[in-house]
């Protein structure tokens, strides 16, 4: 009886071991697939133009610092300026988008007022309009009022972000008990203070997620900046990368281009690394009996 039991348990252990190995193998493949492009980018950015023109190799090129120097000091593109511009636009619009969307979501979730449903539907309807459609009118407006080459023109429209609003509203519905708002009211807090001091901290995970999304999409945005920013000192990173394609063929340096791209994704990774810490589960656990 005992022998039969122990052989069965040995079999089960072996099965578990094989399953684990398979699972790790699968995860390993997925990780390799995700990292492949980053590793390739890093390798390519370490190679000189001639090395890149030659046969494909997985060896470290040894021209990393040279490429970095060339890219950073490229007179025609001015990547440091572009990164500052991109960072101002992306960070500001991420902050504005998440704050005002959370505020709108809070208003719709907590308050009872006339036409609440109609307003909600209206906001949702805006979500269905493609950005390119409204862009035509927006750009005409910008040109007519002489507002081109203003970075805030790329930031402000972020305030109305129906998708972010919808995400925030759904999140609020799942985490914010109305009693908490009422408790804060009785504690003497003003409505605005309740939002800033009680509700916003609870929404931290949702805000972090949306900040990452907004930052990335704004950082990578090429369409609107390319139409609104014409002065070289106002250009953002995506415009500069696009410009490299049309650079003089004789001076064309692929190593520099790869370094450009590497520099362009660094801030995005940095923002993700900082904000992902805030995406923690169960931030409201313990507030109310669930």
């Amino acid at each position: 009886m005992t022998i039969a039991n122990s052989s069965r348990s040995r079999k089960a252990k072996a099965q578990l071991f094989i399953l684990r190995v398979l699972a790790y193998l699968f995860i390993g493949i997925l990780v390799a697939m995700c990292l492949f492009f980053f590793v390739m980018l890093l390798l390519m950015s370490s190679k000189s133009n001639s090395q890149l023109q030659g046969a494909f190799s997985l060896k470290w090129g040894g021209h990393f610092l040279e490429n970095l120097h060339n890219a950073w000091n490229d007179a025609s593109t001015n990547i440091p300026r572009g990164m500052v511009n991109s960072f101002i636009v992306a960070m500001s619009s991420a902050l504005i988008t998440t704050y005002f969307s959370a505020l709108t979501a809070y208003g719709i979730h907590v308050y009872e007022f006339r036409f609440k449903r109609a307003i909600f539907t209206f906001i949702m309807a805006i979500m269905m309009i493609p950005a390119q459609v409204s862009a035509v009118g927006f750009i005409q407006l910008a040109y007519k009022f002489g507002l081109t080459n203003k970075l805030w023109l790329l930031i402000l429209p972020g305030m109305a972000a129906p998708v972010v609003f919808f995400y925030m509203k759904q999140y609020l519905e799942s985490v914010l008990p109305l009693e908490m708002v009422e408790a804060a009211r009785i504690d003497g807090s003003s409505e605005f203070r309740i939002f800033n001091e009680v509700v916003l901290p609870i929404m931290k995970p949702a805000v972090a997620v949306q900040m990452i999304f907004s930052f990335v999409s704004s950082w990578n945005n090429y369409f609107m900046p390319s139409l609104l920013l014409t002065k070289p000192e106002k250009r953002t990173v995506p415009i500069m990368i696009a410009m490299l394609r049309s650079a003089d063929y004789s001076k064309f340096d692929m190593g520099k281009v790869f370094m450009f791209i590497l520099l362009a994704i660094l801030p995005v990774m940095l923002v993700y690394a900082v904000l992902s810490k805030s995406i923690i589960k169960g931030v409201t656990s313990g507030s109310v009996k669930g």
Partner: peptide
């Protein structure tokens, strides 16, 4: 307004502020 009535209320589901410590919860008002 509730804040000007000088009353306090205890809710069935506690309604504590989850991101604050017990001290901060009590000190908030």
């Amino acid at each position: 307004a509730p804040k000007d009535r000088d009353i306090a209320m205890v809710f069935q589901n506690y309604a504590l502020y989850p991101h604050m410590t017990v001290y901060q919860n009590m000190a908030y008002s």
